[in-house]
Amino acid sequence: MSTPALRARSQAGFEIRTLLSNGEQLLVSLLLPALALVGLAVGNTPDLGAGRRIDIVVPSVLALAVVSTAFTGQAISTGFDRRYGVLRLLGVTPLGRSGLLAGKALAVVVIVALQTVVLGILGACFGWHPDPLGVVVGLLLMLLGTWTWVALALLISGVLRAEAVLAVANLLWVLFAGVGGLLLPTDKFPGAAGAILRLLPSGSLGDGLRDAMTGHFSSLAEPVVVLFVWGAAATALTAATFRWDDR
């Protein structure tokens, strides 16, 4: 294993197996989004707006799944890796810090892809018929959203203590899922609240995926810009503040 790419790939495989064997992680990444999908698909409330309900539910749940893995899961695992010195130890192996980050990023992308396949199949069982081009655009938007949310995860896990990361990441997941625009379109919130939510990475990812996968491409510019600005800002702040140990 003489190349940096092979070492990063090995680290990604290690991270994926670790994440998939972690019960709490599976609960947040897959089971809760799947329950949300089933619950919203079979229920009539809340009102999700015009169009076939399942075609709005699935992209909303995919947005939730991205946040579950890229933000909540990654923040908690990085926070505890930092606490236990794992980041420091792997950083002094031939893998190095850049290889460690590349491995983590690759692992998140693979897990988001797996979630997307599983949730997509589940959605299809409930009659999901996405716009074909919208699926491609949606996958690109999910990649952008994954970058943005991983950057936010590293931002908090690089400065807060592990216990604080656990509390903050879980609390924000609940808030974003419930009233952050992930599961419910932002236009279902009162005027000012909806406008604010559209400027958050949660509202922009949720709205963006719903618009993309239902073929409403003309309204995608705003979510893309919002996600990009949050991602760039979080990446710059993380680079300036991330600490490899929590002492």
Binding site: F80, D81, Y84, P94, L95, G96
Partner: peptide
């Protein structure tokens, strides 16, 4: 990486994922 390959490290806090 070539340098890190030649050096072994045991940290005081272990550095082992739980």
């Amino acid at each position: 990486a070539a340098h890190r390959r030649r050096v072994g490290v045991m940290l005081q806090d272990g550095g082992l994922p739980g």
